[in-house]
Design a protein around this nucleic acid. Structure first.
Lengths: 318, 318
DNA sequence: CAATTAGACGGGCAATTATTCGTTCAGCTC
DNA sequence: GAGCTGAACGAATAATTGCCCGTCTAATTG
């Protein structure tokens, strides 16, 4: 027994030596093989043994490292297809710029593709900030489609609609939705959606290759309330019905299931459509939104996320 | 200016991202390139930037790692061609076995060579212990030559002569030196060394491809004194003359310069012969020997060392 | 505004590393 | 002792990485 132990030990010792020579001293496996008096293949085995036995530990001395870990953790935990986490600035924890830059980078990569893509956009402050970060580009091959109306009920343009702004910047065909966010009744909603143009846009949105949306929380400081889309009474009713968040104004509960009735009856925006290969990516920041983000991931309303470090941390620790 | 800074920062961020994906997540550079939306070459540049900017830090979780560092440090500091450091067992700090195993490994690699080699051996407890660790081998192509006599002045065999023992184990031709360690006078020494056999052996030792020696300290607990080769008075005289250590009974001072006169007049052993390509490796352990080892390296009496962690640590911190 | 220059980029290629596969060998069973 | 088993080995080969070099871009300078 002691023999076997000794043998194992000396093998690990050699693995450690090989690992040191490789990672610390920067030797090639050939040199290690020569120094340790074994074949090159054995040296390779020793190095990979050192790795698999966790003898070598790699640490990344950069704020980004923590973000990458969080992103990886979220991806694993919620089965996302894409996740990015921007460093939080401790001096300005609520700032969107980090997240916006990150999201803009992701969108920019997407736009650089030569293959024509359909990009569907929701709404929200974070999404809008991201679009602001986009550089001027020329992408006539892509199409950008809105998931929801760009009008208040009174006909005024909504402040956070981003399709036009983005299309402006990147010179792509675009399809804003000529609807109010909420119809006044179920009947009006059906009527509106029967317009051919609207129908086409909804169909286009359904086919979107990538979808970016914001996430809103439900409550006193809900964007829907602040921006005047729903009344205080409606908000109270939504809360009472279990609503914790909304995406393109569709309100859902803790499990990410859409609430029956209430404002959802009158939402004119497209329903989110998840197919594993088609990313539906939320851009959302802030502890108050954590509950809503969690619910959206649980219910697989989204399969991608761009957020910041503080929010990501909170999401991983419930 | 702030632009340049931002640019640099985002480049480092990307480098960190790339480094994380490469070293932590185990992606290939191709995958990283795809994820970051750059060419593979750029990904490679980012990864190597992360390395050169010291963003990635590798740590080895194994006792060996410290030993490798110490060996590296000694090699640099004293311009050695070879250095190995065995882990010290905190429970038995004086134990030779770690060092002996390490040295035996090194010797074994040497013996495995098909090219005929001349191996010269000195004496000492550590060297003897190392030879004990050698496995049975069959190496008729090599020759093993003794650097010093294997007799006490009265004709008895010295206890630490190792040539015969090693030759036994590895079945190589061997050349023990039929001399006492010390002649009784300069004249006797000259007479003895004029024997043809002795002359040949000395010449062979001079040509040795590799030389292994022990190092003894000078003082009350000096091996030379304990083993009865020199008297207490002689030892006192050597100390007074500045002697700090000895190799094959040649006594040297702090600078590694051989002491003039005294016992050195009567030493019958070969003088160490250093050529950069020919390793002369000391196997020596113990804080009491540190001064002697340091002196030997300073004077370039040796260009290689096998020792243990505690001694190595002491050598590096003066 | 044109010329210059430093730096980044990507193609191509050489070096290095990872994996697969058939062979050998020590230890074990029967 | 014959045969089996599984680990270890090295050759071959596939994959990945590192580096050189011509080209291009953008900033600087005259």
């Amino acid at each position: 027994m002691s023999n076997a132990g000794d043998h194992e030990t000396s093998r690990l010792d050699d693995a450690a030596r090989a690992g040191w020579l490789y990672y610390v001293a920067g030797n090639t496996q050939d040199e290690i093989a020569r120094k340790l008096g074994v074949s090159r293949q054995s040296a390779q085995r020793l190095v990979s043994l050192a790795v698999s036995e966790k003898l070598v530990k790699v640490r990344l001395d950069h704020p980004i490292a923590r973000c990458m870990e969080l992103a990886h953790g979220l991806t694993e935990k919620f089965g996302l297809v894409s996740c990015e986490v921007a460093p939080s600035d401790p001096d300005a924890p609520a700032a969107l710029t980090g997240v916006a830059q990150l999201a803009a980078g992701e969108i920019e990569r997407l736009l650089k593709s030569d293959h024509p893509k359909i990009i569907a956009l929701g709404t929200g402050r974070a999404l809008r900030a991201s679009v602001e970060q986009l550089p001027k580009m020329d992408c006539p091959q892509h199409r950008i489609v809105s998931l929801l109306g760009n009008m208040m009920s009174d006909g005024a343009a909504t402040p956070y609609n981003v399709v036009i702004r983005m299309a402006d910047r990147v010179n792509a065909r675009h399809y804003p939705m000529p609807l109010p966010v909420f119809a006044r009744s179920i009947e009006e909603k059906q009527l509106l959606q029967q317009q051919e143009a609207v129908h086409n846009i909804l169909e286009l949105a359904r086919q979107a290759d990538v979808t970016y949306v914001g996430i809103g929380n439900i409550g006193d400081n809900a964007p829907l309330l602040i921006d005047g889309f729903v009344s205080r009474e409606e908000m109270r009713a939504l809360l009472k019905a279990g609503g914790v968040g909304e995406i393109t104004s569709w309100v859902f509960d803790r499990g990410g299931r859409l609430i029956d009735g209430l404002t959802n009856d009158r939402v004119a925006s497209a329903v989110l459509h998840i197919a594993p290969a088609k990313p539906v990516i939320a851009i959302a920041v802030g502890i108050p939104k954590a509950e809503a983000i969690l619910a959206a991931m649980r219910g697989r309303l989204i399969n991608g996320l761009v957020t910041d470090e503080a929010t990501a941390e909170h999401l991983l620790n419930h």
